[in-house]
């Protein structure tokens, strides 16, 4: 079987990293950064999600097609958000 087997050590490292990042995201929420609070929270969430995708879901060692699938689903998410926002953000322009 040519399948890549991730080591248990890697899994444990990622697990602790995710726990620490959860703590960080809670901690940062109590620091008033203004609008940056959301940015930081989302950045940490994206980072955590990437860890899960790359290591727990083995995307780091998977075929190119899997990576393309992941990226295109996120791209379509951006289309959905972006074009919907293009309406809401410009509604006030006419005053």
């Amino acid at each position: 079987m040519s399948e890549h087997v991730t080591s248990i050590t890697t899994y444990l490292v990622i697990f602790f990293a995710l726990l620490v990042l959860t703590g960080v995201t809670v901690g940062v929420a109590y620091v008033d950064l203004g609008p940056l609070n959301d940015v930081v929270a989302m950045a940490i969430a994206v980072f955590k999600a990437s860890l899960v995708v790359l290591f727990f879901m083995h995307v780091k060692n998977s075929r190119r097609m899997t990576k393309i699938t992941v990226v295109s689903s996120l791209f379509w998410l951006l289309i959905l958000f972006g074009l919907t926002l293009s309406d809401y953000w410009t509604r006030g322009f006419l005053g």
């Binding site: 959860t22 995201t25 929420a29 008033d32 929270a41 989302m42 940490i44 999600a49 899960v52």
Partner: peptide, 24 residues
């Protein structure tokens, strides 16, 4: 396993978006 991890990822986003946004 892939499905379960996906459900985990959804929660990773839900937690800050729902629980943490009002603290400060």
């Amino acid at each position: 396993g892939l499905y379960w991890h996906f459900v985990d990822i959804v929660w990773i986003f839900l937690f800050p978006l729902l629980y943490l946004l009002g603290v400060t």
